[in-house]
Simulated scan of single mutants.
Amino acid sequence: MKIIDNSKIQENDIDLGLLLEMLGGAKDSPLIFYYDGKPVKPGYHVTEVKAGQFSGLDCGANPEAWAEIFIQLWDIEEGDRAHMPAGKFHSIIRKVTEHVQLDGSAKLTFEVSDGVRPMQLYCAARPILSAGAMHVELSPRPASCKPRDRWLAEESSRAAACCGPAAAKSGCCA
């Protein structure tokens, strides 16, 4: 069974460990998530944190197995509250770890809803500290074909090996 290698996660699909590490240095800063081109409302809640172990068969009949963490955000405005501080988010996750085993390198998925629209799935980009706040861009988690993704990664790796600086004199890039 193939285990997904999270060390190759793209910058727009970080894991929980990296998110918490980056938030740790700015615990007093407001934590603002962005999705669908807009920030979450200041009263947003972390309503649920789930950890799952999944196994399946991809469209190329390849067995797959992975761990995934889901963080559910309820995008509501409540009174005159400010955006949650990064330290509070960090504390919520720490509290969850008292009851649920969370693998910091697991795939991280955000489930976001305003309580009216259906919940949507998002992946998170690397947090950015700007203007005194931590900003995390969430982008829709698209479907993909894992065999095609692996093939593209292999092709890209081969091209980089052939056309990298060390191989430029070999003539394979001509």
Score class of each variant (00 low, 15 high):
G115T: 08
S113A: 11
L121Q: 14
V116Q: 11
C123E: 05
L121Y: 05
Y122S: 05
P127N: 14
S144Y: 09
V116W: 13
C123A: 10
G132V: 03
A143K: 04
A131Y: 10
R141E: 07
G132R: 03
G132D: 06
V136G: 06
A125C: 09
A124N: 11
S130W: 06
E137A: 11
V116P: 03
S130L: 10
A125S: 15
L121N: 09
R117E: 14
P127C: 12
R126K: 14
Y122N: 03
R141Y: 07
D114S: 11
L129W: 08
S113H: 15
V116G: 06
A131E: 15
M119N: 07
A131T: 13
P142N: 09
A143C: 04
A133P: 04
A143F: 01
S139R: 11
E111L: 12
A133L: 00
P142M: 08
P140H: 05
S144A: 09
M134L: 14
P140L: 06
M134P: 01
R126S: 02
D114F: 11
A124P: 03
A131G: 11
V116F: 12
L129R: 06
F110I: 02
E137G: 00
V112N: 11
R126T: 12
C123F: 05
M134R: 11
S139I: 14
I128Q: 13
R141A: 11
R126D: 00
S130R: 15
S113P: 15
I128L: 14
P127Y: 12
L129V: 15
P127G: 13
R141V: 00
P127V: 10
D114V: 10
R126V: 12
A131C: 11
L138I: 08
L121C: 02
F110E: 03
E111P: 00
L108K: 01
T109L: 13
Q120L: 10
A133S: 13
F110S: 02
P118N: 10
A143R: 03
L108Q: 01
D114L: 10
L129A: 08
V136L: 05
F110L: 07
L108G: 02
T109P: 03
A133F: 00
R117P: 00
G115H: 10
P118F: 09
F110A: 02
A125L: 07
L121F: 06
P142R: 12
C123T: 10
S144P: 00
L108N: 01
V116C: 08
R126G: 00
T109Q: 08
V136C: 09
R126A: 02
F110W: 12
S130Q: 15
G115W: 10
V136D: 05
P140Y: 01
Y122E: 03
S144V: 08
R141N: 05
A143L: 05
V112I: 13
T109A: 09
S113Y: 14
C123N: 08
M134I: 12
P118C: 04
S144W: 02
D114Y: 12
H135T: 00
A131S: 12
A143W: 01
L129G: 01
P140I: 01
E111H: 11
M119Y: 08
S144F: 09
A143I: 00
